[in-house]
Design a protein around this nucleic acid. Structure first.
Lengths: 296, 296
DNA sequence: CCTTTCGATAGAAGACCTCTATCAAGCAGA
DNA sequence: TCTGCTTGATAGAGGTCTTCTATCGAAAGG
């Protein structure tokens, strides 16, 4: 039963019988049969049938919610028993928005040291992807914005508050002192792509300041943005925490962006399902401690 | 997997391999094997082994919590899909403390009419049993006291507030007007057995009034108590709502018990597991409506 | 009209489950 | 201490269920 629910979740995620089967490590006929049996056992159609996948029925959608719960809890059970057997161990899968990537090390540095049997995997994603993957049980927790766009049913732990700086090559004319958002008209910029919430936030501030900006370069990685800044006269806008790591040398400079002194909270998101697994509970504790340390 | 978790729950409840197997409709070797496999899959011992059942290990206790969740959610999934298929239907199992039995009809009268395919089963239990059965998934909801003893992780809907009356055969000397708890010294009484919370509440009030009472007859059913009252000079103490149904004729009389004007809240308890199944959600709605109607 | 993609179906091999029968350990009473 | 009962584990047979490979038919795209 639980296996079939796993396959059902995979099918809903992949929207394709073959790919879902592959993701589950079974053949396509096996997955087809599993879905069919699930439908027989529950007595309802879960998937619109045709010559190809055409989405979930309303009942299927509802069943998907339950399936995620059940499968998630079953995994939690297994993990908790493994922890009881051999101490804190297992995988902890994190998805993180690009501008929070540097915070990951603060979050997991001590953790990894204290619990060498816990393996971390970190991937960079948009905030929307983070939330989707959390729902789909593809990750255990995420780092993303907490207060700008709706989150859904998740547990949150705020960690720090983002503030923005303008980053440019040393000698750039705007690097003299604080820059207002309104000053950015006609400044050549490179920014994140619009699928990134960071970019949407920046757009909001620019719009509020009455400025329209067309970045010459868009990228989904801050490494790309900073590289551009180093090698051109473009400037970029980054959260302080994300920019710091690039400002160690003297080839780049930064100044605060003010008026407004924009601020957005970034923090940990995890499934709202208590009790938490030990591995996740420990991470949440670390996040809370980190949050306290940052605000002091 | 889910089948094995069901067997594990049954074993924890019955504390006996043979009985648990019987309750699950399988043979004892099948259940033994299932528990063994569960232990192998999870990699931990769940049950203390010996020549007989000796309780759960700490890991087993923890696993039991998860098992209840998973099995409960799996049942919810099945129920919700059946409701999607054929409208509100299925079983709704209620456990009720004796003094709230008359409220059941108020609660389910309209429900049963509106949804003829929902079958109700009602049993009378102590408040502790109600909570245990709720945990063990043996019932879907219960009616019990909400504010006297700790409840655990449950959803509650208050329905009405209990007030107490002294019930006695017509002509009993105390039936003239309100009676204080302190007046009950030396009054021959019959009361519920001490495993009933109702009795414990009454004991509290009597103790607070400085009175010690040794009932001549104890029973776990109010029908027994009232029958005694009808056929003897004993009086009894009952909540108004429970007494009303017996006071239609003129062979019995009742007077309020005052000083203090004791009051305890009785209401519906259900597992704290959202979303609720449709059958249970409907019951909770009815309870809230009933609560509003009563307090007007 | 032909090709490709997608999901369903058939049939065989093997894994898994559940049963009956039986055993060994512990406990109780004589 | 012996005997009989209770309790849970084990062995082995039978049957069910699952998964695989191979193949088909329908629909979409060029």
């Amino acid at each position: 039963m639980i296996d079939k629910l796993e396959m059902f979740i995979a099918l809903a995620r992949e929207e394709h019988f073959g790919r879902a089967a592959n993701a589950q490590g079974v053949t396509q006929p096996t997955l087809s049969a599993a879905i069919k049996q699930l439908e027989d056992q529950l007595g309802v159609m879960l998937v619109w049938r045709g010559s190809r996948y055409r989405g979930l029925t309303p009942e299927g959608q509802r069943a998907l919610d339950w399936a995620r719960r059940i499968v998630g809890d079953a995994r939690s059970l297994r993990q908790e028993m493994r922890v009881a057997r051999q101490g804190l161990s297992g995988d902890l899968r994190l998805a993180v928005i690009p501008t929070a990537l540097t915070v990951v090390s603060d979050l997991i540095a001590g953790y990894a040291e204290a619990h060498p049997n816990v393996r971390f995997s970190v991937q960079s994603n948009t905030s929307i992807e983070v939330l989707n993957m959390l729902e789909n049980l593809e990750i255990d927790a995420g780092l993303t914005y907490l207060d700008n766009e709706p989150l859904g049913r998740v547990t949150t732990v705020p960690i720090y508050s983002e503030r923005y700086v303008l980053v440019a090559k040393a000698g750039h004319p705007l690097l003299g002192g604080p820059v207002r958002w309104a000053d950015l008209a006609d400044v050549p910029l490179c920014l994140m792509t619009p699928d990134m919430q960071n970019r949407r936030i920046i757009n909001q501030h620019l719009a509020k300041a009455g400025v329209e900006v067309t970045p010459q370069i868009e990228a989904s990685s801050i490494v790309v943005l900073v590289s551009q800044v180093v090698n051109s006269n473009l400037a970029t806008i980054l959260p302080v925490r994300a920019a710091e790591i690039f400002l160690k040398g003297d080839d780049l400079g930064s100044v605060p962006l003010i008026k407004p002194d924009a601020s957005h909270t970034v923090g940990l998101v995890a499934p709202q399902r208590e009790p938490f697994t030990p591995v996740l509970a420990t991470l949440l504790d670390r996040a809370r401690a980190l949050s306290a340390a940052v605000s002091n």
